[in-house]
Computed example of a mutant assay.
Amino acid sequence: MIKIDIRDRVGTITLDRLARRNAMGSEMVARFSAALEDLDRNPDVGAMVLTGDGNTFCAGSDLKELGSMDPAGMAEHERITAAAVRRMPNLDKPIIAAVEGYAMGGGFILACACDIVVAAGTSKWLLAEVPNGWLPPWGLQPLAAKVGPVVAKRLTLGHEMQTGADLHRIGLVDYLAEDGQSQALATDHARRIAALPPAAVRSTKRFFAPMIAGLAEPLDAAASDAFLENCTHAPALATLAKFGVRHD
């Protein structure tokens, strides 16, 4: 479910649920959060790479698992996920996303929360929540920090698929890679960062963290409230019914 590899002062976290396109269920979120904390405390790690197994990054929340919950239960699951992702800008070690294939919904935001984003030019990115009938329940602060609120709003509407090349042009993706080479390029950057003086790297992350994380916690709370309200309307109810979500 989560694979960890440490070499040359780079800790690599691989999301490993290929059958679910590396979707984030409850167990994966818990293991992912623990992996981040463990690598951040490890003195032999100077930087991290986050990637997905099987030539895809992450399909977001596991809708099959969420289908066993009512909307309030879904919101609680998303609250826990949001807390793990909000922690990322406040860790001492930089995190570099390596994106191949699909970065959808929460997977899109997970990449945005990393310090640096490397992506294949043909990678596919989409925030599908609004077309499904609801506002994304967390993570819009790091998106807005990356591209500004006007562009973040357009991307959140989710009316068109984006490629890694599209997002590189607007600054969300920092470095483009050839197909299949995002992890290699991300690892190269991670090794160079890991070779820098650790105290100065830590100070750099801490200095910029408030500007990046900003009001993430209250904004996530407001988004979660909007999500629950949106789930009472017909378009969202129709989407949720496809996944067997309970409404009692």
Rank of each mutant, 00 (worst) to 15 (best):
residue 1 M to W: 00
residue 4 I to H: 04
residue 5 D to W: 03
residue 7 R to F: 02
residue 7 R to M: 03
residue 9 R to G: 03
residue 13 I to M: 12
residue 13 I to R: 01
residue 28 M to V: 09
residue 30 A to D: 10
residue 31 R to P: 02
residue 31 R to F: 08
residue 38 D to P: 01
residue 38 D to G: 09
residue 38 D to V: 08
residue 41 R to T: 11
residue 45 V to C: 12
residue 63 L to N: 06
residue 67 G to S: 04
residue 70 D to I: 07
residue 73 G to I: 05
residue 74 M to P: 01
residue 77 H to Q: 12
residue 80 I to R: 10
residue 82 A to Q: 02
residue 91 L to Y: 08
residue 91 L to S: 04
residue 91 L to E: 03
residue 93 K to W: 00
residue 94 P to M: 05
residue 104 M to P: 00
residue 106 G to C: 09
residue 107 G to P: 01
residue 107 G to I: 10
residue 108 F to K: 04
residue 112 C to L: 04
residue 115 D to L: 06
residue 117 V to H: 00
residue 119 A to E: 04
residue 119 A to K: 03
residue 121 G to S: 10
residue 125 W to A: 14
residue 127 L to N: 11
residue 130 V to S: 10
residue 131 P to R: 10
residue 132 N to P: 00
residue 132 N to F: 07
residue 135 L to E: 09
residue 141 Q to N: 14
residue 144 A to W: 00
residue 148 G to S: 07
residue 154 R to V: 06
residue 156 T to D: 04
residue 162 Q to F: 06
residue 164 G to P: 05
residue 164 G to D: 08
residue 168 H to C: 08
residue 170 I to M: 07
residue 170 I to S: 11
residue 178 E to I: 01
residue 184 A to N: 15
residue 186 A to S: 12
residue 187 T to I: 04
residue 188 D to S: 13
residue 191 R to M: 13
residue 195 A to G: 13
residue 196 L to A: 15
residue 198 P to R: 13
residue 214 G to L: 13
residue 220 D to R: 02
residue 226 A to H: 08
residue 230 N to R: 11
residue 234 A to L: 09
residue 244 G to T: 03
residue 247 H to R: 14
